[in-house]
Every structure is written in structure tokens, then in C-alpha cells.
Amino acid sequence: MGKIKSIWRFYRDGFKNMTWGRELWWLILLKVVILFAVLRVFFFRPVMSGMNDEQKSQMVGEHLIKNDYTENKDTLNLITD
């Protein structure tokens, strides 16, 4: 317990006694807010969020197979066989 208290005091006093570092912490805070509260929320929603693994496999599998470049499929004919 004493150890935890001294670690807590170490960080608390460190932040309290900052001089030029204070400006940098504000900068970090501003950046983290922009990144996570604005960009991540409004602009960077993962395309496959909300899907389970099976749905993701299905979606990517279809994308890989149905790409326009895969028109030449006469090398295997197991479906018709």
C-alpha cells in the first residue's frame, strides 16, 4: 500500500511541478481528443464493425472471389462436374 501511495505521489507531484511540460500535455490532450472523439467517431468507423467473424469471412471471401479480374474461371469446373 505504501508503495502504491509513493508511486501516486510521484506522478501527482511530477504533474503539479511541471513548467514547460504543461504546454505539451495540453497539446497531447488536444490531439487525443481530436483523434478519438472526432476522427474515430465521425470519420473512421471500421467498415466491418458490428459483424461477427463468420460475416466478415463471408464478406471478404465474396470480395476476393468476385473481383473483376477473376473472369477467367475455366481452369476448374468442379461445380459442373
Binding site: 471471401g61 476476393l64 472471389i65 477473376t70 477467367n72 474461371k73 475455366d74 481452369t75 476448374l76 468442379l78 461445380i79
Partner: peptide
């Protein structure tokens, strides 16, 4: 192309 065709047939 053979690999992709095989992938499609496997999944189907």
C-alpha cells in the same frame, strides 16, 4: 487464376 477459381469452388 487457378487458385482464385479453386477458392470460389471450395467456398461454394
Amino acid at each position: 487464376r487457378t487458385a482464385l477459381a479453386a477458392l470460389e469452388e471450395y467456398r461454394t
